[in-house]
Design a protein around this nucleic acid. Structure first.
Lengths: 245, 245
DNA sequence: GACAAGCAGATTGTCGACAATCTGACAAGA
DNA sequence: TCTTGTCAGATTGTCGACAATCTGCTTGTC
């Protein structure tokens, strides 16, 4: 046995590439909320047939960033202030849980990775690259979820993150100046390195990160104007479980 | 305006029906973990072409109960003891959160619904219908998530529930006697009706529900024997985010 | 017998075409 | 003027066929 272990090679199906392309377009805000995705047009733009495109769209629907109405179309999800609020409050709970699980698993590699990701955020901030700033910040916060050694938690957090990333991208797009953050992560990193788990958890739960209040205000302002995308507001997600009734 | 409001009509695409059929087959254990799903065979059994079937399978992959390997096939996820443990521990966290959110929203309708679902469990228990017993028990526990008025939480819980339901069904299938539970939900319901939120949360976090220990033991015994389904163990889920490394 | 090359069968991925459905406009009638 | 029926255009849902890939067996060579 060689001591070298290889990572799995990249998926080479068109479907996988389409998923990546679409996700990036949505998460960076190039595709606006409520906007309809015309299969024919996108398919010929990508030089692909509709079959893999449709399969890719099904995946993104389940991922929660698209929504589909039979015989009407597939739309980018609408962003309501409540959605953001919901996602954010759940995120705090998950953070707290992740810290608890990660705590006793922290080691040198963890701290090194933590510093590395923190550095990436600072670099993006210096570069005034707001998109990358959002991306790296979320990756920094994702470390505790990756390290927690709970696959279900990680998966859940990633789903949540997709939306948060989309929200932040939208916000950043609206006000075209960089997010203020000189360095709001200093405390976070320091607490994760420290000895007081409760303090770290408290920080995760209480600290309003990444301009959250302003993001919410922006979302509320969006809800004032009518939904411009068409009928995406009629969309119902989920898979047919019983709803409160 | 009439005072009657209609609910949206059912989705009438083949895809939606296929999703429902497959999900039920998986969640009831008719399709075993690790088992490969042959597209051609299933398609002609259902009298459907492969296109809607494949789209349905993509949805279930994202839902987390199938896993796909390009050019190799799509498989029912393998159940490891760790998976069950992970899902269960996250579930407790979500329960605690749901109780917190639901607490101040409880009203007469909530209590009525609670009793109704509790009654459904007892009925299924009397009928010795173990499949339905699992189903109703999960629905009972789902009420707090539906009532919490946090769509992201609900969605997350439903994803988790899919797996838990699958695990329990497997367990129940293995030992062909009904789950003992005379009525383990009595305390749960009583606490949810009471005035002490902390007590309800503590109960959710500490009470080992639904024969969990035995379920874990069963899962561990499964891991001893080699994975019989083929190569589903090589499967990697997730959507290409950076992994720890 | 061990091993690599290559072939045949089966299965998945993709394509182009057709069927089903929706939308909006237009006309007929009250 | 308002409502209702009809129709054409556009878009989504589905189908059958073909291309790409994997698997296991066979064959040939040493």
């Amino acid at each position: 046995m060689g001591k070298l272990d290889f990572s799995p090679i990249a998926d080479t199906t068109r479907r996988a590439e389409i998923v990546a392309l679409l996700r990036r377009a949505i998460l960076t805000g190039q595709l606006e909320p409520g906007q309809k995705l015309n299969e024919l047009r996108i398919a010929e733009q990508m030089r692909v047939s509709r079959a893999p495109l449709r399969e890719a769209m099904r995946e993104l629907v389940q991922e929660g960033i698209l929504t589909s109405i039979p015989y009407a179309g597939t739309f980018v999800i609408d962003v309501t202030a409540k959605d953001i609020d919901d996602a954010y409050s759940l995120n705090k709970v998950l953070d707290e849980f992740a810290i608890e699980l990660t705590w006793k698993l922290r080691d040198q590699r963890f701290f090194a990775e933590l510093d590395q990701r923190h550095e990436a955020v600072k670099q993006a901030t210096r570069d005034r690259d707001t998109t990358r700033q959002i991306e790296t910040a979320l990756q920094l916060h994702g470390l505790i979820h990756e390290w927690a050694d709970n696959s279900v938690l990680l998966e859940t957090w990633q789903r949540l993150t997709s939306r948060l990333q989309m929200y932040f991208a939208l916000h950043q797009r609206a006000r075209n100046e960089p997010v203020p953050s000189e360095d709001m992560h200093e405390t976070y990193v320091r607490l994760l390195k420290g000895k007081d788990m409760r303090a770290a958890q408290r920080h995760a739960r209480e600290h309003i990160d990444l301009d959250f209040e302003e993001l919410l205000a922006y979302a509320r302002s969006l809800e004032q104007r009518a939904s411009k995308g068409g009928r995406a507001d009629r969309a119902r997600q989920g898979h047919g479980r019983p709803e409160r009734g």
